[in-house]
Computed example of a mutant assay.
Amino acid sequence: MNGRRLALMQILDSRKKYTARELAERFGVSLRTIQRDLDYLQSIGMPLYTEVGAGGGYRALPNRLMPPLQLNQSEALGLFMLLRLLEVIPDFPYGEIRSHLADHYYGSLPPDTKEQIDRIGDHLAFIHRGAEIPAPYTTLILKAAMEKRQLSFDYSTSGGMKITQAFPLGLYYEQGFWYVPAWRGERTLLYRADRMHNACKLDATLPELPTLKAWMKQEDLRERVQVSLAFTPFGARLAQSDPDFEGMADDRWEGRIPLQELPFFARKLLRFGPEARVLQPPTLRSLVAGLFCQAAEQYASDEDDKP
Results as ranks from 00 to 15, higher is better:
Asp37Glu: 09
Leu38Asn: 02
Leu38Cys: 10
Gln42Pro: 02
Ile44Glu: 12
Met46Gly: 00
Pro47Gln: 03
Leu48Asp: 05
Glu51Leu: 14
Glu51Val: 10
Ala54Asp: 11
Ala54Thr: 13
Ala54Ser: 14
Gly57Ser: 05
Gly57Ile: 08
Gly57Thr: 06
Arg59Gln: 14
Arg59Thr: 11
Leu61Ser: 05
Leu61Thr: 08
Pro62Cys: 05
Pro62Ser: 07
Asn63Ala: 12
Asn63Phe: 13
Arg64Glu: 01
Leu65Trp: 05
Leu65Phe: 07
Met66Ile: 04
Pro67His: 05
Pro68Val: 09
Pro68Ile: 07
Leu69Thr: 05
Leu69Phe: 12
Leu69Val: 12
Asn72Pro: 01
Asn72Cys: 08
Ser74Asp: 13
Glu75Tyr: 01
Glu75Ala: 12
Glu75Lys: 02
Gly78Trp: 08
Leu79Arg: 02
Leu79Cys: 02
Met81Glu: 12
Leu83Gln: 09
Arg84Val: 00
Leu85Asp: 03
Leu86Ser: 11
Leu86Asn: 06
Ile89Phe: 08
Ile89Asp: 01
Pro90Leu: 06
Phe92Thr: 11
Phe92Arg: 01
Tyr94Val: 07
His100Val: 10
Leu101Phe: 14
Ala102Ile: 03
Asp103Arg: 13
Tyr105Lys: 01
Tyr105Cys: 07
Tyr106Met: 11
Tyr106Glu: 11
Gly107Asn: 15
Gly107Gln: 15
Ser108Trp: 06
Pro110Trp: 08
Pro111Val: 04
Thr113Ile: 15
Thr113Pro: 00
Asp118Asn: 15
Asp118Tyr: 03
Ile120Tyr: 13
Ile120Glu: 00
Gly121Arg: 10
Gly121Val: 07
Asp122Thr: 13
Leu124Lys: 03
Ala125Trp: 09
His128Pro: 01
His128Glu: 12
His128Gln: 11
His128Ser: 13
Arg129Gly: 14
Gly130Ala: 10
Glu132Cys: 06
Ile133Asp: 12
Ala135Glu: 06
Pro136Asp: 07
Pro136Ala: 07
Tyr137Arg: 05
Thr139Glu: 10
Ile141Ser: 06
Ile141Met: 05
Leu142Asn: 09
Lys143Gly: 00
Lys143His: 11
Ala144Ile: 08
Ala144His: 05
